[in-house]
Design a protein around this nucleic acid. Structure first.
Lengths: 341, 341
DNA sequence: CTGAAAGCGCTTACAG
DNA sequence: CTGAAAGCGCTTACAG
C-alpha cells in the first residue's frame, strides 16, 4: 500500500506553504485563484484526501451524525422493526444530502450508551430512534440534554421531554383510521396495543381512536383494548385474546402494522373473514402491508419527510439555530382490510 | 456545555503523568494495578471519553468500518431493496460485536466513490453491498484493490474478481428451488430475471434453475427467460410479458422475491390461480414473502451468517490475516406458492 | 494573498 | 512500572 499523500507533499510540489494548501483545498477566498487551481490539480493527481482525524481534531467537529436505534428489548435478534429500517433509509439519504456521514448503531435500551457518541467526538450530533419512552430512557435523555449534546429524536412528542422531538401525529392517525372504520358502518371496536405511558405513541393512537368512537356517539369499551408490542406474534396473541373474550367486534385497530397483521392471522385462523366479519386497520404503512391478505388499510408515517426534518433540525441545532418540535401528518392509506378500497 | 475532560485533567487529579493515564485507560499491562484503578475511577467520575480523532490520528486507525450500499440506479428514491436492509441490520450487529462502528452510505453506481472512505481515513475497511456487477463497478473494485484498501463485498462470487467476495450459493439456490417445483410435478418452467453477465447473481440462479430442469430430462426453453430487475413492478411487467407469449407454463421462478411477488400479481390479475394454475418460487426470503397471498416459497439467504462472515473477514483483512472468498448455503423455505407446504 | 508557528488530544518509542 | 518528549496531519490565529 502506497503511503498517503499529505498536505506537505502537495505544498512541496506546488511550491507553496502547507497553510496555503490547506486553504486552497477548502476553497478559502483568501487564496489566489491561480494558486488554488494549481494546488487542487496536484491534490487530484496525488489522489489526496484530507485526513479527517487530523482535520476534525483540529477544528473540533466531525462532519458525521450518529443514529442510535433503540430496539424493543423483546425483539428477536434477527428481525428489526421494518418501520425503523425505512426511517434508516430516509435518514441516511437526508444526511448524505447535507454532506454528513452517518454512523449507525443499534442499542439495547439497557446499554449504557450515555452520550458515548458525541462524547467520543465521533459525531457532531445524535439522532435517537426507537419506540417507547420508558422511564429509563427519559432519564438518559435528560442527561444528554444537560450535557449540551446535540440531539433530536423521533417518536412521541410531549411537552415535558428534554430536547427536541419529532414524530408522526399519532393522535390524528388513530382518529383518521377509526373514522374510516366508522364511515364504513362498523360499530364495535377493539384496539390492540399497549396504551400506557411507557408506550406514548401507542397511547396517542389509542386516544385518537377513542375520540373518533365517542364523536360518533358510540361506546369505548375498555375491555376491548388489549396490550401488545409491535411484533406479529404479539399481535397474534392479542387477537386470540380478543376472540376469547367473546364480545361483539366488527372492527379492530392495531397500534402498528405488525400487530394488525398478527391479529388478522388470529382472526383468519378462527374462521373469521377479513374484512367481511371483521375489519382491520394498522399503523405505519410498512412495505409488508401492501402484500398481506387482504392488503392492509393503514396509517402512513411519512418517513421520507421525517428523515429530512430530523437531519435538517439536527444540523440547525449544531449550528446554534433554535429548533422546535413538530409533528408530521398522518395519512390514511385505504386498501382492502376494512372492506373498501 | 461543559468543557470535556482531557487525559491531562485526569493526570493532574491522579497525580501521575498523562502518559500513564493513557496507558491505564487502555489497560496496558505496563501500569500498576493500583494506579490503573485510581486513574479509571477518576476518568469515570469526570465522565471522560477518549477523543477518537486524536487517538485515531496518532495510532492511524479508526475503529470504524464503512458500509457502502449500492443501489440499483432504477430503484425509486423511497424504496430500498428489503434484502439490503436486512443485511444492513445483521452487518451493524456483527460490527458492534467486534467493537467497530459502522459508517453507512448509500451510493449510486454513478458516484465517484472511489475509495473515499478509507482514503479519508474515516474507516479501516469497507464493505461493499449491492446487486449486480456492472463493468464500471468491476473497474472500481480493481482500483480499490490496487490501492491496498481493505474491503470485502457481498454478491456474486467469481474467480476473476479483485478482492474478497462473499455471497449466497446462488447456483445451488436456483437448483434447489427448481428441484422443488419438479418434485411437485411441474413440467413447464419460466425464469423471470436478468440472466446476463451484468447481473451475475441472477445469472447463477438461472444456471441452477436450468441444471435442475435438464437433470429431470425436461426442456429449457430460452424464450421462457424474461428479463427483470429486482422490483415488484419489474416482476409484474415480466409476468405480463410471459403471459402474452401464450406458451404453456406451470411453474415460474423469480430471480428475487420482489420479482416473484410482482409476477404473482400479474398472474392473479389475469385470472390464474397461484399455485393451482401456476407455481411461483422467489429468492431471498425477505420479510414480505411471509405475508404475500399465497405466502411465497423461496430460497433463503442467511443474512445473519453473511453479516458475521463479512465483518469477521474484513477485520481479519485489516489485521493482515489472509481471507478467502466463500459461499453461504442457500436454503429452501417452503410456503404455499408452489402448492405444497 | 501568503507563510511560519502553534496546537487539537492523544499514543508510543525512548530513557530510566 | 513511570515520565518527558515527539509527533500523527491538519486548521487557524498572527504577522506581514
Amino acid at each position: 500500500m502506497k503511503q498517503r499523500a499529505t498536505s506537505f507533499d502537495i505544498a512541496y510540489q506546488a511550491g507553496v506553504s502547507q497553510s496555503t494548501v490547506s486553504r486552497a483545498l477548502r476553497n478559502s477566498p483568501l487564496v489566489n485563484e491561480e494558486t488554488r487551481k494549481r494546488v487542487q490539480a496536484i491534490a487530484k493527481e496525488l489522489n489526496y484526501k484530507v485526513d479527517k482525524n487530523a482535520s476534525n481534531l483540529r477544528s473540533q467537529h466531525t462532519g458525521t451524525l450518529a443514529l442510535l436505534l433503540f430496539e424493543d428489548p423483546t425483539t428477536d435478534d434477527s428481525l428489526i422493526n421494518p418501520f425503523f429500517l425505512s426511517m434508516l433509509g430516509s435518514i441516511t439519504r437526508a444526511a448524505a444530502r447535507k454532506g454528513y456521514d452517518l454512523l449507525v448503531s443499534f442499542q439495547q435500551l439497557s446499554d449504557d450508551w450515555h452520550a458515548d457518541y458525541e462524547d467520543a467526538s465521533k459525531a457532531d450530533g445524535i439522532i435517537l430512534l426507537g419506540y417507547g419512552d420508558y422511564v429509563d430512557y427519559a432519564e438518559k435523555l435528560k442527561k444528554l440534554y444537560e450535557q449540551g449534546t446535540h440531539f433530536v429524536r423521533y417518536g412521541s412528542v410531549a411537552e415535558d421531554q428534554p430536547g427536541v422531538s419529532f414524530g408522526c401525529d399519532n393522535f390524528q392517525g388513530g382518529y383518521l383510521a377509526t373514522q374510516h372504520l366508522i364511515a364504513l358502518g362498523r360499530k364495535h371496536f377493539a384496539f390492540l396495543g399497549d396504551a400506557t405511558e411507557s408506550a406514548p405513541e401507542f397511547w396517542a393512537r389509542y386516544q385518537g381512536h377513542c375520540k373518533a368512537i365517542q364523536e360518533a356517539g358510540l361506546d369505548v369499551r375498555s375491555e376491548c383494548q388489549i396490550s401488545a408490542i409491535s411484533t406479529e406474534e404479539s399481535g397474534f396473541v392479542a387477537g386470540k385474546k380478543l376472540l376469547e373474550k367473546d364480545i361483539q367486534i366488527d372492527a379492530v385497530m392495531g397500534a402498528s402494522d405488525m400487530i394488525a397483521i398478527g391479529a388478522m392471522r388470529a382472526f383468519q385462523e378462527n374462521g373469521l373473514k377479513v374484512p367481511d366479519d371483521i375489519a382491520v386497520v394498522g399503523f405505519d404503512d410498512i412495505p409488508i402491508s401492501h402484500f398481506t391478505n387482504p392488503p392492509l388499510t393503514t396509517i402512513q408515517q411519512n418517513t421520507k419527510l421525517a428523515g429530512e426534518i430530523l437531519i435538517e433540525s439536527l444540523v440547525n441545532l449544531i449550528h446554534g439555530v433554535e429548533v422546535k418540535a413538530s409533528l408530521t401528518p398522518a395519512k390514511l392509506i385505504v386498501r382492502k382490510s376494512c372492506g373498501c378500497g
